[in-house]
Simulated assay, not measured.
Amino acid sequence: MNHNTPNAPLSPLPHTGEARFREAMAHAGPGAMITGLAALSLHRFASAPPPVMIDRVDVLVPRTRRLRSTGHVRVVRTAEPPQPVELDALPVAPVPRALSDAVAALSDPGVVRRLLTEAVSGGHCEPAAVVRELNRARLLTRPHVVDAVDALLAEGRSIAEDRLYAMVREFALPDPLWNVDLRLPGGPHLGGVDAYWPDQSVAVELDTRAPRQDDDALWSEYTRKREHLERLGITVVHITPRKLREAMDQQATVVRTALMAASDRQPAAYVVVLPR
C-alpha cells in the first residue's frame, strides 16, 4: 500500500526527527532536497529507519553549489537534480533517486534487497525507474545490488501479472490463454506471450524490461518477435506495468478494440499454443 496518496495524510514527524531534517535543510539552503535513507523514511518505507532514528541526513544539491558536509548532514551532489516532492513541508527526492542515494551508501545485501523490493511492492514506483537510477549511479556493478535488482524485477513482474488478470476480470474481457508459447506447426518457436486469444489472434505482452546496459539488444528481441507475429496476422498489444497501474481502463479498451477488430482482418496463420 502506498502511504503517500492524498487519501492517507501523513502524521507529523516526531519532534527530534523533524528538527534534524529541518536543520539539514537550513544548512543546505534553497534548491536542496532530502535524499537517501532520510528521504525513504519520509516516504514512509517500513524497511527504512523512522525519522527519529536517522543519525545522518543526506541532502541532494546541484553540483555547482559550494557546500560542505558537516555534523549529521552529508552533501550529495548531482548535475541534474530531480523534481522534489513535498512531504511534511520538506522538499524530498522522489523514491527512485532517494533509493539510489541510499543504496550507494549501503553494503548490507539484506537491507538493499528489502528497500528495493518495498519500492515496488509498496506501490511507490515502477521497477524500471529504480533500475534506471541505479544504472545512472553505476551501482549495477555491485553483486549484492544486482541480486537485489533481480528480486525487484521478479516482484514487479508478479505485480504486473496480477494487474493484468484483474483487468480481464474487472472489465469483463473474454478469458484468454495465460502465459503461453507460440510456435508454427513443425516450425520455429515464435516467442512467449502473457495472454492470447486464439479465436481473435490477439496477444498481450507485458513490457517489464528494465533499462540496463543490454537494453538495446533486449528491445531488438522484443521488436523482432512482435514484427514476426504481426506478419503472421497476430495482433500484439504491448502494455507496460505503469499503464496498467495508472490507466487500467484505457488498456482494457485497447485490448477490447483489438478483439473486436479481429473479424475485419485477414485470418491469421495457424499457430500451435503451448504452456509456458
Results as ranks from 00 to 15, higher is better:
Leu134Pro: 00
Leu87Pro: 02
Val85Glu: 14
Leu140Glu: 10
Leu87Arg: 15
Pro96Tyr: 03
Leu99Phe: 12
Glu86Ser: 09
Arg138Cys: 10
Glu133Thr: 04
Ala105Val: 14
Ala129Met: 13
Ala102Leu: 06
Pro91His: 05
Pro96Trp: 09
Arg113Tyr: 05
Leu139Met: 11
Asn135Trp: 01
Arg97Ser: 06
Arg97Val: 13
Asp108Val: 12
Gly123Asp: 12
Leu139Ala: 11
Pro94Gln: 02
Ala102Ile: 01
Leu90Gly: 13
Glu86Pro: 00
Ser100Met: 05
Leu134Ser: 01
Leu140Tyr: 01
Val130Phe: 00
Leu99Thr: 07
Val92Arg: 14
Leu140Ala: 07
Pro94Ser: 07
Pro82Ser: 04
Leu139Trp: 13
Val76Arg: 15
Leu90Pro: 11
Val112Thr: 14
Glu86His: 15
Glu126Ala: 14
Ala89Met: 09
Ala129Lys: 12
Ala89Cys: 07
Asn135Gly: 11
Gln83Tyr: 00
Val131Thr: 05
Pro109His: 07
Asp101His: 13
Leu115Arg: 06
Arg136Cys: 00
Val111Cys: 08
Pro94Asp: 03
Pro84Ala: 10
Asp88Ser: 15
Glu133Cys: 13
Arg77Trp: 11
Glu118Phe: 08
Val85Gln: 14
Pro84Gln: 03
Ala105Trp: 11
Leu115Ala: 02
Leu140Asn: 00
Pro81Ala: 10
Ser121Lys: 08
Leu116Ile: 06
Ser100Trp: 07
Pro82Met: 08
Val111Arg: 15
Gly110His: 06
Val131Ser: 06
Leu115Tyr: 06
Ala119Pro: 08
Ala93Met: 07
Pro109Leu: 12
Ala129Asn: 11
His124Trp: 15
Ala104Asn: 03
Leu90Arg: 13
Leu115Lys: 02
Leu87Ile: 15
Ala102His: 02
Asp108Tyr: 12
Arg136Tyr: 02
Arg97Trp: 02
Val92Lys: 14
Asn135Val: 02
Pro127Val: 05
Pro91Gln: 07
Leu106Cys: 09
Val120Glu: 01
Ala93Lys: 04
Asp101Ala: 05
His124Val: 02
Arg114Val: 00
Ala128Gly: 07
Asp88Arg: 12
